[in-house]
Design a protein around this nucleic acid. Structure first.
Length: 672
DNA sequence: CTTAGGG
DNA sequence: CCCTAAG
């Protein structure tokens, strides 16, 4: 048995890098453009699989004339803004795809079952995948929560993971220190429940069926303290008898898990799932140079989020240490996840030091078997680092679709895009102490990621697959991975984007600004407003201590209104090309300075992004450029010949203007 | 809305 | 490029 220390990290969210925005014209054409995804070797494959299923079979498939959307189908969105908005607010909601996925439970089930089973691995403990969605929410996009737990004795990969789209969507990951890096990456997907909080009010519905898995939603009673969010867990179980795949109605709210339809936890499933992911991750990660990470933010709120699509381009993500686990020392191999690692509370309070010592000695046996029981797992002795992924935001997608397309097709298209991304577009990057950890085979301990380390130095990033990576941001964007600061101020943990999302409903300002932001983006063209993004990224805290995610945070965070507000995004800089300069010079030579509107019409009528003010400014800079030494000039060199003409024309028209000036005054004078 | 200029 | 005053 191997003693392991576990680490728990909380992820607040991921931000996915935006995909280059299509030009306006392109947008008009209405075609979706998204990057093809690479191979599906990412942790999200599972999701992708599900999504794929959806697309293929689900009613929700895009083009399908889904009955559900009947009303909407005929609706045609004519206004670009509207379209974007809808995308932004609707389609992109992660709730959207996730919920969709969930609804397709059967698929999930299948995926899991299909996962290769590692023979060597021993799995113990609960292996159940829990998905929950909260129907209570009006939000069309149900929130889903997926919780999977798996355990591997020998490797102790990760215990469990939770994917929650709830307002606080989070994914929690637990790893043992011995876990390999790759594992950790994979782990991101799994999470465990927090005993304390969650268990208290387990309203879990189990849904199962052979082919289909059903989801039930029952809101999790809001945790008293730490988790403000309400969760509903649905567990998926394979039942032969159950053929129905539909989603169970949320009606049965709180059945205790026990009483519930019965949950057969199949450790195997979980394990498989985890393994599956892990493997994918490994393969994916290996050999790939890490390119600029992109971060994905999860959208917490229905509304908000998507206004920032552009910004999604990079997403840094951060993590924080929930609480100091350091005290735990560990344990052996336990992988029991739930108990120990999961619940922040317990860790924080009681277990810590005491256990560690005690257990470290001989905990082996316990560790292994622990898992079966489920609760038993509570061995405090492990030192773990907890991760909590608060949410995922879908990376910016480009969608162009004909105006006469149906809403259904739009949805489908978006789904497709999302699926593609999940399927192969992302990789997980680990950054520790400012360096990317490329060696997937190192253990966390070897890497230095241990419970007693400052997790602040650890960061995760979602990176686009090189293949489909979106260009926009430079390869090196520091902003991609941001380590979290100290866990202290919860408020600080929330990035504007996230915050906005979370509070979107309540905070009008935020919403507005976000939307505006988007709008401006649109106008501006190709490149995203990086600056804005960067800002957001910088401030955002993808990872947050689990404890952090609470009411406190939620309650507090009045989003600070973006000062200049994203709404007023600066237009992107677009250097004038030599050709443009040529056209400008020619026009000015003919029309003179002072008639910028005419110049615009004459030479730049087609360049919507060039306003007459821009032309005037450019002329101003050209004159300046022409007067300085070539060595002092920057940017694309302008042929001297043009600069000479600039000076000549400028001199000429200045003279003309002067003449006019002279005349006027004189006339006036004369009049007087 | 255009110009003109400063920032 | 932005912002603004001024026409």
């Amino acid at each position: 048995m191997v003693l392991q220390k576990r680490l728990d990290y909380g992820f607040n969210g991921y931000q996915v890098p935006p995909i280059p925005r299509a030009t306006r014209s392109a947008r008009r054409r209405g075609i979706i453009r998204r990057k093809a995804n690479g191979d599906g070797t990412c942790p999200f494959d599972l999701l992708a699989t599900v999504a794929g299923k959806l697309l293929g079979e689900g009613e929700s498939s895009p083009d399908s004339t889904g009955s559900a959307r009947g009303k909407e189908q005929n609706a045609i969105v004519k206004d670009e803004k509207i379209k974007e908005k809808s995308y932004a607010e609707g389609c992109y909601e992660r709730g959207f795809f996730i919920s969709e996925l969930v609804s397709q439970a059967p698929v999930v089930n299948r995926s899991l079952s299909e996962l290769p089973h590692a023979q060597n691995d021993t799995i113990s403990g609960p292996a159940s995948v829990t998905m929950s969605s909260d129907c209570s929410e009006k939000f069309p996009f149900a929130k889903q929560f997926v919780n999977g737990e798996s355990r591997e004795e020998e490797h102790g990969v990760f215990s469990s993971c939770t994917l929650d789209t709830e307002s606080d969507k989070q994914i929690k990951i637990e790893l043992s220190n011995n876990a390999k890096v790759s594992t950790s990456k994979g782990a991101a997907i799994s999470s465990s429940e927090f005993p304390d909080v969650w268990d208290k009010k387990p309203s879990t519905l189990l849904v199962t069926s052979d082919d289909s898995v059903k989801l039930s939603l029952s809101p999790y009673p809001a945790p008293c303290r730490s988790f403000p969010v309400i969760r509903n867990d649905v567990k998926l179980d394979n039942r032969d008898d159950d053929e129905n795949s539909g989603c169970t109605q949320p009606s049965t709210p709180n059945k205790a898990s026990g009483s519930a339809p019965r949950v057969r936890d199949r450790p195997i499933k979980k394990l498989l799932a985890s393994k599956y992911w892990e493997e994918n991750l490994k393969s994916d990660n290996e050999g790939h140079a890490n390119t600029g990470g992109k971060t994905m933010h999860a959208c917490h709120n229905r509304n908000s989020a998507y206004k920032h699509q552009r910004s999604q381009r990079d997403f840094p993500f951060k993590k924080r240490k929930l609480f100091k686990c350091g005290s735990f020392s560990n344990s052996d191999g336990e992988m029991s996840t739930d108990g120990i690692c999961s619940s922040p509370t317990s860790d924080l309070h009681g277990n810590a030091s005491g256990y560690s010592k005690a257990s470290s000695g001989g905990g082996t046996a316990a560790g292994t078997s622990v898992f079966n029981g489920g609760r038993a797992s509570f061995k405090p002795s492990d030192s773990c680092v907890k991760f909590r992924i608060k949410s995922f935001r879908v990376p910016e997608l480009f969608v162009e679709i004909p105006e006469n397309a149906t809403v259904g097709s739009l949805k489908g298209t978006v789904m497709e895009a999302v699926t593609a991304i999940l399927g192969g577009g992302l990789r997980i990057g680990v950054v520790f102490q400012g360096k990317k950890v490329r060696d997937d085979n190192k253990t966390l301990l070897q890497t230095g990621i241990s419970h007693d380390y400052k997790l602040d130095a650890l960061g995760f990033s979602l990176e686009p697959n090189p293949i489909q990576a979106s260009p926009p941001l430079g390869p090196d964007c520091r902003s991609c991975v941001l380590p979290c600061d100290t866990p202290q101020p919860l408020t600080r943990c929330l990035s504007p984007a996230i915050t906005g999302i979370q509070q979107g409903r309540s905070d009008d300002h935020t919403g507005t600004s976000l939307s505006n932001f988007v709008e401006s983006d649109r106008d501006s063209a190709p490149s995203p407003h990086y600056a804005a993004l960067e800002k957001i990224s910088a401030n955002s805290r993808a990872l947050v201590p689990v404890t952090a995610v609470n009411a406190e945070a939620l309650a507090v965070v009045p989003l600070r209104k973006p000062k200049r507000s994203e709404a007023t995004q600066r237009r992107i800089r677009r250097p004038f090309s030599v050709a443009e300069v040529e056209a400008l010079v020619q026009a000015v030579e003919k029309l003179g300075t002072g008639r910028w509107r005419d110049v615009k019409l004459r030479a730049f009528d087609n360049a919507k992004h060039r306003t007459y003010v821009d032309l005037k400014d450019k002329w101003k800079t050209l004159v300046h450029t022409a007067r300085i030494s070539p060595q002092q000039r920057r940017g694309e060199p302008v042929p001297q010949e043009l600069l000479d003409r600039v000076l000549t024309a400028h001199a000429y028209w200045s003279q003309q203007q002067a003449k006019q000036q002279m005349k006027q005054p004189s006339d006036t004078y004369l009049l007087l």
